[in-house]
Amino acid sequence: MFSLSLKEIKFFKLRYILIGFILFFVAALVFIISGLANGLANDNASSMKNMNAVSYYVSKDSDNRMDRSRFTATDVEKIKTNDAQPLGIQMMTLKDKESKEKLDVTLMGINPSQFLMPTVVDGKTISNTSNNDVVVDKTLEKQGAKIGDKLYAENSKTTLTIVGFTEDQTYSHTPTVIMNTDTWYKIFGGKENAGFNAIALKNDNATTKADVKNAVADGKFVPKQDLIDTIPGYSAEQSSLMMMLAFLIVIAVFVLGAFFYIMTIQKVNQFGILKAIGAKNKFLIGSTMLQVLVLSVVSIGLAIGFAFVLQQIMPNGIPFVFDFALILKFGGALLVVSLLGALFSTTSIVKADPLQAMGRAE
């Protein structure tokens, strides 16, 4: 069976190459959109995704949105456990004192000695006693920022100094500027006026939750993913791209099904003659499905390689993330779709009449 399938592919090279190209381009498009969806999700919420927290405590009336939640500094100071830390998030425009360029960023106020502090990949980290020092995401470096640069917050007339860079720390498509709570208070009008948006929990331990609940009233615990989904634009972006992927896969079913059906119709006479010399429906169907399997595996494999290479040469400004596990899932879905499309065409094999085929042969 395998030998017969490969011999036919080799004999009708152009026909199978054209079908393979169609499957390749459909698969490549699925993988590219998947990479863009993953990249946009990462660019919109990587700071939250990579944060060492499993859930958050936010205001009851916040609709699970971080920007609508607020707790006072006095409230959060009552929390005794180290497994729960205050988190302040606020989008703002800062000015680079050297270049005079305005930068859209997200300020993030945390306790840098605790679990919320991300890894610094270049420069040095900050501490609770750092005087207006900040660690920023690497995307600011691509915009020309460097260690030692001064960022100016006009609303509070505060100058911030970049001392280090971190990676994958963006929020709502803006780089984060991470500072200690003292600097956070300076920017937002002092300790009596500045508040925090949420309390991050390192674990879902009942004791940790009880301590937070007793210290800060009128709040609720929200899983990390639920809070990520409410970041402005996040759900809309992801649902739109996922719908495009779903339509692509549905289109692939009909396109591939039509091609395999036409290809099978063209070989009805051959199937009839093979039946006349003893070939069974099971053998012929198996041979056809094996051809589709080989064609699909090769085409999808090449498309995965193409998506991987594309990530390497794609400009830095385009958010594209090659998630191999996710790509394999979509590749498996396309393989199943290809086999289902081919299975639909096998009805022609079953209906092939040996006597009619031999008559045609005459």
Rank of each mutant, 00 (worst) to 15 (best):
T230K: 15
G257T: 06
P175K: 07
M108H: 03
K146H: 03
N131L: 11
F71P: 00
S296A: 15
G195Y: 00
I178Q: 05
F254M: 10
F71N: 00
A194N: 09
L274D: 05
E8Q: 15
S5T: 08
T74R: 12
D353F: 05
G144W: 04
V298W: 04
L339R: 04
S172C: 15
A73I: 11
I228H: 07
K150Y: 12
G332C: 14
L256A: 06
K97M: 15
A276T: 01
K49G: 08
A194V: 01
V292E: 03
V337P: 02
P175F: 11
G359L: 10
L293T: 13
D133N: 12
V255P: 03
K60S: 14
P118E: 07
S3E: 15
N132F: 14
E237P: 00
T129A: 09
N44R: 13
D211P: 07
F12A: 11
A325V: 10
R15M: 07
T81Q: 01
A258L: 12
K267R: 15
T230Y: 09
F344Y: 13
V30R: 04
I79Q: 00
N155G: 08
T183L: 04
N180K: 06
K142Y: 11
V255Q: 06
Q356I: 08
G305I: 01
Q143C: 03
S62N: 08
F324H: 10
V298I: 14
V177P: 00
I19K: 00
D218L: 04
V163M: 03
V177N: 02
Q270S: 08
F31S: 02
I126F: 03
I231A: 07
I22H: 03
G257V: 05
K329Y: 05
T170R: 14
L201M: 14
V76I: 14
K80N: 10
N316H: 11
Q270P: 03
D83M: 09
T129R: 06
K146L: 02
S239C: 07
A307V: 02
F283L: 15
F31W: 03
V292W: 08
N132M: 09
F12M: 12
A84G: 04
V222C: 03
D104P: 01
N132D: 13
K280N: 14
K78T: 08
Y234T: 06
V54T: 10
S348F: 12
N205V: 07
A279Y: 06
F254K: 10
I17M: 08
I262A: 06
P319A: 02
R70Q: 12
K202M: 11
L107H: 03
L94A: 06
A303V: 07
K157E: 07
V135G: 01
M51L: 07
Y234C: 09
I162K: 05
V222W: 04
S69M: 02
G278T: 02
M1Q: 06
S3P: 08
D323R: 15
A217M: 10
S47L: 02
V212T: 09
A252Y: 06
I32L: 11
L103T: 01
V76H: 07
G164P: 00
T170V: 10
M66C: 06
V294M: 08
N132Q: 13
N44T: 12
F259S: 00
D204E: 13
I32E: 02
Y152E: 10
D229R: 03
Q143G: 10
E192T: 15
V268R: 14
S3Y: 13
G233E: 06
